[in-house]
Design a protein around this nucleic acid. Structure first.
Lengths: 193, 193
DNA sequence: GACAGACTACCTATCAGAAGGTAGACGCGT
DNA sequence: ACGCGTCTACCTTCTGATAGGTAGTCTGTC
């Protein structure tokens, strides 16, 4: 049955928290061991190397994101509401400090120093998210429910960049509200007059 | 005279390169020693601890940025041209890989894991850049040479976020051109009709 | 001009601790 | 009897940092 609070899940979850705080080189097996309450060697049983651990983590993260967005799309028909819901999701995560930063955004910033196996997964996440946003923007443009000036792909990339940059600023200032402040006018611009 | 290629400068410069690649925990004294061509211990002579080194680096980085923007402002009178010049500067840096990422943007992403002395400096950089952008936007709004919808401060924060996010995307995709693609429409929006 | 003292920049040697990782044994449920 | 998850114990390498020494430079005084 799905008692999914397995040890390997706990390892991945605590690794995610540690990575969102300090990146790939900002955590060690010892840190995870301390949080989960097992020994370092036991982590190696589940994930032979650090690369395995982080690759798996990013793969899971992307999978969760993709299915999460698919479910969201099922419940929210309007493109504008979808984009809004996506922004709200992050606003909430940052505000309550549950997921204060996107794992892949953080890993992307240190991409040149990452093992290639991980770098590939991070890139895949960006491509997946960008594709989703592009499709939503395209739908909105067709329906006339979104005001898109140029190419949908470009608009999607710009929006994603603003979201990531807003996360960064919220963190830099130590003020979660900054995220919402930045996203507000950005979303406003997408509304048809 | 100003033969400023001193060893401590070389140390700072190579540290900057290493940090823009992999962040605070992504480089070591050994890495710098190998690049500069001295022993690890000699770096400690110039910068007793790693915190000293990075704090000094970020201070210098902010100082350079502030004086650079002041000089730019002296040569370019029009607010829109200033913002454009700022964006072009980064587009060039990313394209030719000379400074492929903003040191402070990278450090901000791993802010929770940074020593407080460094975190403080990073925050100061964000505040300084945001203040400059706000002042330029304010001038543009007064003159009517910039189309500002809401508060200048918010507009400045949003622009800064987009710049940082665009850097991130360019890095994630491994395509420097993405930066320009994103900044294009962003700058377009600031132009009065 | 010469010498002493202070200072600068670097060196070798060494350290304690943390890093990622391995080997082999123990217990437990099937 | 087997395999899974965990353990203890250990290894190697790296990391930031220190101690102590050497050679050169700068400065002031006689």
């Amino acid at each position: 049955m799905s008692n999914l609070s397995t040890t390997s899940d706990e390892i991945l979850t605590s690794a995610q928290k540690l990575i969102t705080a300090g990146g790939y080189n900002g955590f060690s097996y010892a840190d995870i061991a301390a949080v989960v309450g097992i020994r370092k060697a036991s982590i190696h049983h589940h994930f032979p190397s650090k690369v395995d651990l982080v690759r798996t983590l990013v793969q899971r993260y992307r999978g969760d994101a993709e299915s999460g967005l698919a479910i969201l799309e099922h419940h929210v028909p309007e493109p504008l509401d979808l984009i809004q819901a996506y922004a709200d999701y992050w606003a909430k995560c940052i505000e309550d400090e549950s997921i204060p930063f996107c794992v892949c955004a953080l890993l992307a910033s240190e991409l040149p120093a990452l093992p290639t196996e991980v770098a590939v997964e991070v890139r895949a996440f960006f491509e997946s998210l960008s594709a989703w946003l592009t499709s939503v923007m395209g739908r909105g443009q067709q329906q006339g429910s979104l005001k898109i000036s140029g190419a949908t792909r470009v608009e999607a990339e710009a929006f994603m960049a603003t979201v990531h940059g807003a996360m960064l600023s919220a963190r830099a200032y130590g003020r979660p509200a900054v995220f919402g402040t930045i996203l507000g006018p950005t979303l406003q611009r997408l509304k048809p007059e």
